[in-house]
Amino acid sequence: MFDRLKRTESAVVSYSGAVKRWECDRNGHMNVQFYVRAFQMASEVLATLVLGENPGTQSSDLRHYRFHGELFSGEAMHIQSSRIADGEFAGWVLHRMFKGARLSATAIERPAYPVEGLPACRPEALEKALPRGLSPTAERAGGLSDTLSASPVGVLRPSELDHHGAVQWNALTALCSNASHGFLEQIGLTADWVNTSNCNRMAVEMSIARHGLGAAGDTVAIRAGIADVASRSFTMRMEVVHGVTAAPLATVEQLCLVVDLESRKPVMVPEFVRTAAARYGMGS
């Protein structure tokens, strides 16, 4: 079934590509939406080989990402995929993105396609992909305080849809970037604060749950809030909804560290984030 792909003893290479300059942020790193796109393509490649046709963005409804090492312009990367055989995520798919031999990012997904034919992963391969700081709450739509309003973030265009007319995962991620930057600015994590403190946030973990398909022309709004705060990390939650009907489209959670840009080490979460969590948190 997977004979046309490269494979190792415990994985098949489900995607391979390279980082284009126009996919990179100001700091030269590949933007998160392109990690999401690569993992989605890997998922669809597997689903196509199993099902004989491509279900598109509906190959999964829940995926959990962890980011381990940045990718830069011009670098090549590939994704190795396996079946998770045991434990809490048995029956899910493990995707590991490598830059050469170095692990760059991981994703585990709940597949909407049979995975029995996929090679089983080794337990040690799964370790760095398991959720660490995020709870599985992204799976449920809603939850943020009703006092938060949803900000309009754009309109779905035909180029952002898959061949079945459903919005692509990477397009949703790009819309979330609009919302998260605006929200963080609003609570005090401003460019001035970054320059003064020489600290910034760094997303190390992310969950995306799909609740709806979307359609070309749909306006989209996102309600953003702080779902959790620990000493050196906080979780931002974004509820992506239809701009008019408020029908849920997706829920995205990001676990962010606050990092000293010089030492590259995590520092205490600033007080204004805690204040925002109290004001805009889950169910407050």
Binding site: R4, K6, Y15, S16, G17, M41, T48, P158, H163
Partner: peptide
Amino acid sequence: ATVSHAGVLRPD
């Protein structure tokens, strides 16, 4: 030879 790329064609 090698499989240098696997992926999906998008509408655009």
